[in-house]
Design a protein around this nucleic acid. Sequence first.
DNA 1: GCAAAAGTGTTGTTATTACACCCATGG
DNA 2: CCATGGGTGTAATAACAACACTTTTGC
Lengths: 228, 228
Amino acid sequence: MALPEHSPELKFAVLAADVVLFTIDEEILKVRVIQVNRPPYYDHMVGLPGGLLLPHENAEESARRHLKEKAGIQSDEIYLEQLYTFSKVDRDKRGRVVAVAYHAFIPWEKLSDAEKEPSNSWWVPVVALDNLAYDHDEMLALAVERLRSRAHYTTLMSKLMPAEFTLTELEKAYEVVLAKDLDKRNFRKKLLKLNVLTELPRKRTGGKFRPAQLYTFTSSDVISIEVL
Amino acid sequence: MALPEHSPELKFAVLAADVVLFTIDEEILKVRVIQVNRPPYYDHMVGLPGGLLLPHENAEESARRHLKEKAGIQSDEIYLEQLYTFSKVDRDKRGRVVAVAYHAFIPWEKLSDAEKEPSNSWWVPVVALDNLAYDHDEMLALAVERLRSRAHYTTLMSKLMPAEFTLTELEKAYEVVLAKDLDKRNFRKKLLKLNVLTELPRKRTGGKFRPAQLYTFTSSDVISIEVL
DNA sequence: GCAAAAGTGTTGTTATTACACCCATGG
DNA sequence: CCATGGGTGTAATAACAACACTTTTGC
């Protein structure tokens, strides 16, 4: 593969990294979007954060940098998974751009105040998004689909949860992502049997009602749940 | 995302498409490999088929072209799925190459005689492969893992089967891919209940023994099997 | 003592596993 | 008639779905 020397005419494309960054706030699945003020989208166009790779960067590093520079997300604790590479010839009207798309996850509780407040970039409920710039509608749809699918058979949800949470909070997060109600008793039985949660020696107090047992994910890795 | 004008210095990388093409022959999972005679691998190095994108191609088109040109696989019936994009800065010693990897599938029966016989390119059992050029060991490992995983919850195996097959043949194919024995009765019960197979009005005769019922996959699409 | 969320078990149904024998055919 | 692969059923176990009441707390 690849020619011995890369003749300039083979460097016809630029590489970009785009990110679909998810969080859950107020029991709503939200995505970070930015203003796109570039040809052919002058103003009032909304898109996903992303941008070109620099020569010393790999795609994931570039995705992280653009999250910081364009989406104002300074946290280094963003969890990223590669989603898909979009290489259609005319996906960007301005020239050939091949985009490596990532989906990314951050618990709302880990965001700074500045990262929660809107500025050049802001959080929007997934259901409220369409008519994004470029092919970002397609990216978003793929990201949501992949998130749902991976929520079923991995512990990816751990990347949307704070360090400590109650089972009810975890259930609500699953319900938000899967967009359907779950049965409280069956949910608890199943999650506890999976052996991925550790019971903490404390409860969430200060609420008006009965204190709830706190849990944490035992491993910080996203692991596959054995289905077969 | 992306600058209004793509300055030449941002076109620092070339794009490649690499393919892990699988087939099953003699109850062995095999992959198509080629000779790599490029710096720094002069001769005797084996790698996966692939190569650079041309300006008018998207990544999948390029993958198909390189399969034809370098791997001698003329068939247009190759089924391709995007696997992963490798963008590490130094993955190719000769310069910056970002590779979009695909895994691909073709039933042995659909190959022409020329495509079965070795020439510049040939079929090798997966288990016999290591020390491939570039980062192709990693690509292959990822492709095998993805194939196994998708064999569990999709009908991807249909892309490794001929148009008509017996249940024993299908079971053997699963056993080869999953690298474990399956129970004949349970396998049949499960697959028939999934409702993805159509019983054909004929049997495989000409064998020495009792003729076996022939089936086909009802849909040519690879569909997800409902697990949850 | 009441409002609200936390927590807990049982039952019916469905899927999964393990396992062994008869059938149809060609030679 | 025999060798070989084709084809089938049952019972025990495990997973899943549906469903309602008691407990603990703050006020």
